[in-house]
Design a binder for these strands. Structure first.
Lengths: 199, 199
DNA sequence: GTCTATAGTTGGATAGAC
DNA sequence: GTCTATCCAACTATAGAC
């Protein structure tokens, strides 16, 4: 029980203040216990941090996958566009996305390698999922050798560029970036030649 | 003299470890002085940090503007593409870009507002500069009412999405994102209707 | 302007009672 | 598992000699 409460409180503090800025005393205070009690559940700050990393990656992976798979009946453009608003909602509701971004881009120097060994496979998996979706929707010939990994990466790039604004300046500016970028991206995607046979 | 040396050393530490993670002792050590000597030049850590923010924004603004203005003879696509490699070089050579990104996306909570009051006008100015360049190059009719602010914002979005990967996983992956995204973006930009009369 | 010395606080972490 | 008490290291910041 307590272990999960500590983890959830730590998540918020790490997202807000980073690894160095977060303090175990404040985390304990949020949970309603004293600092030393944390050590009954985690060996120290590092182990707590890594536990949060694992937890966030795991739940976010599930949520993202289930979003994309729940949208199978939707046409591709709506599905891809919907992901932006889904991200905005995710970000409004919970601190997971914020934590994920912060530790992805600026992990604590001394835990850099360990963190990246968790984070990199996560993003790679996302890219492969997207590539599969794009391939299924943009071409009728499933035997074509295109893997659509470039298109998936481009999509991730504009998502990242928009999401960064979401953290930075909030939802209003995030949606501005999205509205400005999406029409250009979508037109460019459909004229790749690859997308020529899209219905 | 010393004030500038302290500022430059602080820049590197803030970029690497963030506001909370950086320590005045280590900064002083890099300069070759003792910690209390810093207080002869800056009131404290906050003032030093804000001084670095101002300095970085000022010099980066100059550098970015002069890059774009030095490229007037280059065709638009090369100029826009060249900005990506320019960013990669900037990032390789100096810590300014890294600092700028870090404090833009994750400023110290207690200085958030003050930092943003410096950072936001900076990015807005970049957007207007880009919009002007795009308008001049993509249309022959300078009286058209299009302000090309959306197109500029879309460009900034893909730059951000790529640059984030530059910090995250280094130049190799940055260039992957760029190569994947650029052709789609460029094709989309030229088929906006707005760009129809581009030479 | 730079130093030594030190105050004052907070950080992570441990020992041991209950 | 949670607490009190405590340790030790690190931090920002200040006082005062030179």
């Amino acid at each position: 029980m307590s272990a999960e409460l500590i983890r959830d409180a730590a998540l918020i503090h790490f997202a807000k203040d980073g690894y160095e800025g977060a303090s175990l005393s404040k985390i304990a205070k949020d949970v309603g216990i004293k600092k030393p009690s944390i050590y009954a559940h985690y060996k120290g700050k590092d182990e707590l941090f890594i536990a949060v990393v694992k937890y966030v990656l795991d739940t976010e992976k599930r949520r993202m996958f289930s979003y994309f798979l729940s949208q199978k009946e939707n046409p591709l453009e709506n599905r891809l566009k919907g992901f932006f608003t889904w991200m905005a909602e995710e970000n409004r509701e919970n601190e997971h996305a914020k934590f994920l971004l912060r530790i992805s881009y600026f992990p604590p120097s001394k835990l850099n390698r360990e963190v990246m060994d968790f984070v990199n496979p996560f993003f790679h998996q996302m890219q492969r999922l997207l590539a599969r979706v794009l391939k299924n929707q943009l071409t009728n010939d499933s035997n074509r050798s295109d893997d659509f990994m470039d298109e998936a990466l481009a999509y991730i790039t504009i998502v990242d560029g928009s999401v960064i604004e979401l953290m930075f300046n909030g939802e209003e500016y995030f949606l501005k970036r999205f509205s400005a970028t999406w029409p250009i991206f979508w037109r460019g995607l459909l004229t790749t030649g690859k997308g020529a046979d899209e219905k």
